[in-house]
Design a protein around this nucleic acid. Sequence first.
DNA 1: TTGTTGTTTAGCTATTATGCTAAATTGATA
DNA 2: TATCAATTTAGCATAATAGCTAAACAACAA
Lengths: 120, 120
Amino acid sequence: MLDMQQKIKIFKALGNETRFKIFKNVFTGGYACSIDKKKPQDDIIAQATCVTTIAEHFSFSLPTISRHLKELKDANIIKMTKKSNKIYIKPNPTIIKDLADCFADLVDNYNDTMFQFDNT
Amino acid sequence: MLDMQQKIKIFKALGNETRFKIFKNVFTGGYACSIDKKKPQDDIIAQATCVTTIAEHFSFSLPTISRHLKELKDANIIKMTKKSNKIYIKPNPTIIKDLADCFADLVDNYNDTMFQFDNT
DNA sequence: TTGTTGTTTAGCTATTATGCTAAATTGATA
DNA sequence: TATCAATTTAGCATAATAGCTAAACAACAA
């Protein structure tokens, strides 16, 4: 699935408050692109959002948000699709699923083999 | 369960190669404390490991590893128990379980409500 | 008491991360 | 073509991170 370096990249990306908030909102649909709200049915990625819209939710500058988004993209947490002169941002649920599975496996494996631990 | 700041702390802690390796090995039993190997049955936390033993697996200095362990402890990822003049390190599986659950929920919620996404 | 082992703290340096503004780029539109 | 809107790149300042060595501390052993 995910190799160690990929995992570390994901953790690094999510270990920053601004990026974590972006991640959470992108995933839970917390953002809506103002333009798309007017004509959702016209657009195949109507539920996606764009860079400027996300930046509006923060007090940081647009370039700063842009760079945070790049990091989330490089960690494969979000997907960015250019359409005309805008970039639509979507979550990448498969990678988060992989991460959840990897943690769950770790815990399962731990419970199976290390039951003799005293975890007080 | 975990609030946002706790999650960010966990991600920050795991977003470093050395700490990630320590975390992985502590969880999977990759370390064994040399002293305890001689008399495992005598010790209630025989499967645990200690600071010096972990440091032996890295080319970094002992103080450096000590500080990494402190960060993992502060993020609640590991538990450190002092016994005589040694500190035993154990994983904290509950927090990792919480994290796995939180990711899994995110994905489930995403799949339920955002099925109209085109995730190509 | 003196020494030994295990660990942390202090203080330093180098690198990385995070913010900014200004300028560049890209695509759409008048 | 000129302009506008959306985004990124460049260059800079500051803060945080991660490494080191030396020194301190804590518990045990001789």
